[in-house]
Every structure is written in C-alpha cells, then in structure tokens.
Amino acid sequence: MAVGEPLIELRNVNKYFGALHVLQDIDLTVGRGEVVVVIGPSGSGKSTLCRTINRLETIQSGSIVVDGRPLPEEGRDLARLRAEVGMVFQSFNLFAHRTVLDNLMLAQVKVRKRGKAEAQRRARELLDRVGLADQADKYPAQLSGGQQQRVAIARALAMDPKVMLFDEPTSALDPEMINEVLEVMRQLARDGMTMAVVTHEMGFARYAANRVIFMDDDRIVEDRSPEEFFKAPESARARDFLSKILKH
C-alpha cells in the first residue's frame, strides 16, 4: 500500500493535567492511507494523544495539523473538521436513546445535511458491511459489546471520514468478541483507510500496521515498522513491555 503525503502532523505537542505533564514533546506524522498503531503501558498517554487529534483534549503547546489545516479552536470550524475525523471509543458511546439505524443517520442528516432516504441507504450499506444489517431497529443496550463497537465503527464511517481514530476499541470487550471488531478494522485497513489505533492487541499491531509507535511515560519512545519493532525493539523499556505481554 502506497503511503501518501502527511494527513495528521503533530509537532512538539505538550499537554498538562494540572501539574501532570501527560504528553511531552510529541512529534507524530500519519500519512494518507497509513495505519499507525500506538501501544504502551497503561497511563503512558496513548489515549490522551489519540483524543488530542480531534481536540476532545486540548493541548498547551505545539501544533496539530489535519489535512493541511491547523486544528481550529472551539466552534463551527472545529465541528467541520471533526466530521472528517472518525472516532471509535473504548466504551462505544452509541446514542442510548436512538436505534442502531438512527445512530448511523443522525450526524449524516444534521452535519452532512443528507436527505433521510440517502442517509438511510448509506446507513444500511454500512451495517451490512459490518455484518449487522439485521440489527438496524434495535437499541444499543440490546446488542453485545462486539456488536455495539461494530455499529460505532459504522457510525463513524457514515460521515465518510478522511481518517479514523480508534481509542482502545477492544479493551472493554469479552475476549470472544474482540476478533469480530478487529476483523472489521483489518478490512478497513486493507481498503486503504488512514487509521491511528491505540490498542493492546499485539496481533493487530504486528500484521495490520504500517508503523508502530511505542509510548511510555508520556512520550514516544519508538516509532518503527512492526517487523523491526517486534523482532528487535531498541529501547529497554519496549523490550521489557513486550516480554511481559508476549510470553503468555
């Protein structure tokens, strides 16, 4: 897969939660069509990094450029940019008061200003793609975790985003449901979607990623191809991390 020009560029990004320095001098580029997987121990700043890209978390210094434009401040410009950046959350966050179909249609109609019929057609097409065409009229609470997460992915895709952010998409799932979500993500990656994925799934990192980012203590420690990273991590911290999670 050819990796194009940069779609997301973070330069010298710093973020604090009060006195806590949670992102330190982060430089990261995600090219068009690239799949970048961010791994690292809990509390290393991976999720925060992911959430800064569509400004669900604000930063104190540095710059974030998405598709050639600096991330706007709060307001309509920011809303417009967020429509181009799909996001999938650890806790799914499907709209609890709306059916699956409505979940997929709401932002299409309100943000993309599509007609009801067109939005519904697109919604059903995407539900079919994630294997949930028969669940359209159910409410989120009636679905399993894996199904909810696949709906959440379809909901983000309905906006036709340029890039998809995944914030630990399988961490809240039962083990047997993880694969159905990863399969949807692998398919997306094969179709050429630009993706930034925070995950603990090493199998996904190894086989679906173009690059692996290893974070520890609020900074990026390694940024390499998955083959190199998993065969011979450069830092002692990454070796230690891998030895702990790959043994069992």
Binding site: A79, L81, E84, G86, S91, A96, A107, A156, M159
Partner: peptide, 27 residues
C-alpha cells in the same frame, strides 16, 4: 448523561447546539 454521549456527538462533527438538542437533552 454519560460524558461519552456528548463526546461521540462532537466527534461526529455536531455543534454544541446539535449535541445538546439531539443527544444530551433527550436523555
């Protein structure tokens, strides 16, 4: 209403008014 509901709405490009009116207030 869980914070994630509003975050999901905003991440889809909905404005503050749309998020409040279509997602948060109904719940």
């Amino acid at each position: 209403v869980p914070v994630g509901q509003g975050e999901a709405a905003r991440s889809l490009g909905m404005t503050f008014e749309q998020t409040l009116g279509a997602v948060v207030l109904p719940q």
